[in-house]
Design a protein around this nucleic acid. Structure first.
Length: 220
DNA sequence: ACATTAAGTGATT
DNA sequence: AATCACTTAATGT
């Protein structure tokens, strides 16, 4: 859910991320905008006119194939932005991806006009942009590795872990079919992989729910 | 009680 | 790993 204070103030996390001057600039962009779950923020072909800075909630970023199939690229969580947007806006290019609100979000819209100036003026902003792009790039590389070596089981594990990070709970409320859609595979495959994970004691299965077990605090 | 939907399984490609 | 065909279990009406 979205707290009222977040509508007018920058969340804690940003204060040690940026220098005071930049914080002030950011706060002049308030009030932040709310978007409800399910809202489509971006579609392939659309032009982006601002850089989203997410304060709360998360956004699901997918790539759409010609035949309408979608594959999940990544989630964008709080205190971060979308790497694709940075690269797109620099050259005023159109979007290659689709972005849908996963959990109600609160975001600041940073106008493109400020990007150039900020990059030069604030080392922390430049660092933030570079870090965002590098992290995403590394992750995409890893994903390509996994696809190339047919390691769908690893992808599934990472997918589950991502979900835990995003909603803070090890209870994942998704059907096997939904997971299959996100990973661009069939339900049967997900069922089999999850079954294996359950036999390995890594997970508990219920209808429309998966509970991921924490091996950290278990007996040995 | 019946229909619908989610999940489990063996066989085949 | 994907698809098919089929079973079983859970849920909805």
């Amino acid at each position: 859910m979205i707290s009222d204070s977040a509508l007018t103030k920058l969340p804690e996390g940003f204060y040690d991320l940026f220098e005071p001057e930049l914080i002030q600039e950011l706060e002049s962009l308030f009030p932040a905008k709310k978007f409800p779950q399910g809202e489509v923020l971006m579609e392939p072909g659309s032009r982006i006119r601002f850089v989203p800075l997410i304060l709360e909630g998360s956004v699901k970023v997918t790539r759409t194939e010609a035949d309408g199939k979608e594959i999940l690229l990544y989630f964008v969580g709080p205190n971060s932005s979308c790497a694709m947007t940075f690269t797109c806006c620099m050259e005023d290019r159109i979007s290659e991806i689709k972005a849908v609100v996963e959990e109600d979000i609160l975001l600041l819209q940073v106008p493109f006009g400020r990007m150039d100036a900020w990059m030069q003026q604030y080392p922390s902003w430049k660092g933030f942009v570079m870090k965002t792009i590098r992290e995403r790039f590394d992750e995409l590389l890893r994903t390509i590795d996994q696809i190339a070596f047919h390691k769908l089981d690893e992808r599934l594990l990472k997918y589950l872990q991502d979900h835990i990070q995003n909603n803070g709970s090890s209870l994942i409320n998704l059907s096997h079919q939904q997971m299959a859609d996100d990973l661009a595979t069939s339900r049967v495959v997900i069922s089999r992989l999850l079954k294996k994970l359950e036999q390995d004691g890594k997970v508990l299965l219920f209808r429309n729910q998966v509970k991921v077990l924490n091996e950290g605090k278990k007996d040995k």
